[in-house]
């Protein structure tokens, strides 16, 4: 859902560019304090993968197609600061070199796909993962992540539709109902892809996601051992 130039009103572009730019600055500063090379290496590979996966449009019926977003995957794998920066880098490169998403709409695109499609579902994910013990198992964690991936595409299309509507492209209700409707289908594919990828990545590099389930599983194993 890369918005091209000339569709959104200037006010919306400027406002969302301010939010996205501010968040990028904040996360960049936070990252500077806790930098580690291994983490950045994996971030580079994962970002490259998400970029490549975004090139593959799959048909979703109704004559439309969709593609992987990956924002939720990046956030869950890398954490909010690095995840947000990775997502922003993808969008910047897409708009500067591939004409995918306008340069004036870059702030809006980062807001839609990085903030609404990335940070918002990640916030829900991290809180539910911390609060509900059912989500602290390996299976529960990947189901929760898939649900958040669904939510990520849903929220991104919602904010994209609102921006288009308030820019006067068409009526807010008309555009919202269409864009959210079609993205509900795309979101199902996103959830399935994230679910498969999480299981693949857990096999490739267990350390990446252990923090979401390992300590809890260890603890339950310990109590089980004590009870025996």
């Amino acid at each position: 859902m890369h918005i091209p130039d000339g569709l959104l009103s200037n006010n919306i572009n400027i406002a969302s560019a301010a939010v996205s730019g501010g968040l990028f600055y904040y996360f960049n500063n936070r990252l500077a304090k806790t930098i580690d090379d291994a983490g950045l290496n994996i971030a580079g590979a994962l970002t490259a993968f998400v970029f490549a996966a975004q090139m593959i449009n799959f048909p979703v019926g109704f004559g439309a197609s969709g593609h992987f977003l990956g924002a939720s995957l990046l956030m869950i794998a890398l954490g909010a600061p690095l995840g947000f920066i990775s997502m922003s880098v993808i969008l910047v490169i897409q708009s500067l070199f591939f004409a995918d998403g306008g340069i004036t709409a870059l702030g809006s695109n980062i807001f839609n796909m990085g903030v609404m499609g990335g940070l918002a579902p990640y916030f829900i994910f991290i809180n539910l993962n911390g609060a509900v013990s059912a989500f602290k198992t390996r299976a529960g964690f990947s189901i929760l992540a898939a649900a958040c991936a669904w939510l990520s595409v849903f929220l991104a299309s919602l904010s994209c539709g609102l921006q288009l509507g308030f820019s006067g492209v068409a009526g807010v209700k008309t555009i919202l109902s269409t864009i959210v409707f079609i993205h509900c289908f795309i979101a199902c594919a996103e959830a399935a892809i994230v679910f498969v990828l999480l299981n693949f990545l857990t096999a490739v590099r267990p350390g990446l996601f252990e923090k979401y389930y390992k300590s809890y599983e260890d603890k339950t194993a310990e109590t089980a051992a004590v009870n025996q």
């Binding site: 890369h2 449009n57 197609s65 006067g168 864009i179 993205h183």
Partner: peptide, 20 residues
């Protein structure tokens, strides 16, 4: 091999934007 259909956003714009 990617689908040549318009993506979710383009599809929406094609449907509604001409009038708007």
């Amino acid at each position: 091999m990617a689908s040549q259909n318009p993506d979710g956003l383009d599809w929406t714009i094609e449907k509604h934007a001409s009038a708007g």
